[in-house]
Amino acid sequence: MIAVLALLAGVLLGVWLDPTVPSALQPYLPIAVVAALDAVFGGVRAKLDGIFDDKQFVISFISNVLVAGIIVYLGDQLGVGGQLSTGVVVVLGVRIFGNVAAIRRHLFRA
């Protein structure tokens, strides 16, 4: 599957290159990763549901990442960056749990 291959390629690339995160991106990268994970789990669930749509996945992926980053940036500008990051992580975590639960029901019928 190309997605898994691409994920592995990205992991290997990250291990191989081992870059340092620029300090300007450091507050946003973890949130962006969590948002992307949310999109990926949503995509997997949609795939199992048989309603996976490429464009929808791409757009939701990008928009998730962008919105999460913008929220954190806004929080930083407002002085509530830490709390807002926590809120974003909580919301995304809830969504990830829901998607994982759906995937689990699909895979194990339980």
Partner: peptide, 23 residues
């Protein structure tokens, strides 16, 4: 579309590893 997905997922894996390593 799959190329786009692949690129995005590769990016995700990349940033995931980078973030994990950084942390």
């Amino acid at each position: 579309a799959n190329a786009m997905i692949g690129v995005l997922l590769a990016l995700l894996g990349f940033t995931l590893v980078v973030q994990l390593r950084t942390n």
